[in-house]
Design a protein around this nucleic acid. Structure first.
Lengths: 207, 207
DNA sequence: TAGATTGTTAATCGATTAACAATC
DNA sequence: TAGATTGTTAATCGATTAACAATC
């Protein structure tokens, strides 16, 4: 039975990792998997995996393990990946282009549904079949197309303003590639993926 | 005085964030900053910031705060950003191209010094002024150019093999954009930055 | 039944925050 | 001196891991 404790961010970050491995097993027609096997493949403690999953329900069978198809379905439900989730991308520079072309990868019901950029030279052009729109169309488009998440790939100085416009338009989750901290109301989730800080913290561990 | 406890990963991940804000203050010719001011701007608890910094030494002055220039220098030392750090990029697809063009951004003594890809159609071509080399030159090039870190932007099925070749060549830190878990010896640090899992965990928080 | 593996409790470990003496 | 702010200790909070009864 699903419990209603508050779920830790660490658990939510691991679920997509589990899902990815389980999808891989599905493709290979594996029907059952144990926490031990998952842990070995994903470098996660098996007790951790069992505990994570038990947070949401009794998905396994004692002595047997987890049914792969069933677990995939359950995790997709938990992550709300059952209906298509539409994503806006703001910033059609090199990185924006690259991520737009990821649409093929973003199976599992995620889709980049709109691209915004204020560069007049880019307006009207298309990236991966999606037209580039000016930012003044952001609010309307997000409402019309029921876009729920956004990716920011604008330069750092523009990121906070874009963030403000996105949250104004009702976006509740942002993946920020701009190398700057951005702030929003507490009910807006912000994940960071910028290359620079990632590399800099890696540097700490050298020699 | 620098203490020799073991430093938690959380601290190391925050240092680049502090550094970024401090650089911003430098540009604005601010000479002194308090943990309170930093905390307010970065959404981090001021006690956290003081504790993080105190791990490495007594950098502040009671009643005054931190000298911006001095703190920048100290954090750069801690993160080993004093000498140029060379980075290899493996996978010259759209994302690889985008990141290569980040070289301008990666000031602070980071530089992409080599690009590898096995697509025969790409060999010999250049990205952002850097020639694309075949993977069989990876080990030699990494040794010659004293490359210390690597970014993986190859498709998921190739990522583990690339990781193996990189660690074989002595790389100790990897930033992985491929949507798959990769494994390496414990002395190799792997950071993940793939778009899919980031977006999927954001989806959890919707509605 | 014997072996395997879950779900869960208890123990451990680690990270964050509050509070305050020291001191600029 | 009065006000501000650090560095650090103690308290709190949260996350991970070990262990094992339940049970397939």
């Amino acid at each position: 039975m699903a419990k209603h404790e508050k779920i830790s961010e660490a658990v939510v970050r691991r679920l997509p990792i589990y899902l990815r491995y389980l999808s891989y097993l599905q493709q290979n027609e594996v029907t059952t998997v144990s926490s031990q096997q998952m842990g070995k493949n994903l470098d996660v403690n098996p007790a951790q995996i069992r505990k994570d999953l038990a947070t949401f329900g009794d998905f396994g069978k004692k002595g047997i393990g987890y049914d792969v198809n069933y677990l995939v379905e359950k995790i997709r439900q938990i992550l709300k990946l059952t209906d298509e989730i539409r994503v806006a991308l703001v910033g059609a520079g090199h990185l924006g282009h690259a991520i737009s072309n990821y649409n093929a990868y973003l199976k599992d019901n995620m889709r980049i549904a709109a691209i915004f950029d204020n560069d007049p030279g880019k307006l009207g052009k298309e990236v991966a079949g999606i037209p580039i729109q000016p930012l003044n169309e952001l609010a309307d488009t997000i409402a019309q197309r029921q876009i729920k998440l956004a990716i920011i790939t604008v330069p750092a100085p523009a990121a906070q303003s874009v963030c403000d416009q996105l949250t104004q338009a009702g976006i509740k989750g942002i993946l920020n590639f701009a190398p700057t901290t951005i702030r929003a109301k507490k009910d807006v989730r912000i994940h960071y993926a910028d290359v620079t800080s990632n590399l800099q913290s890696l540097a700490y561990y050298l020699t």
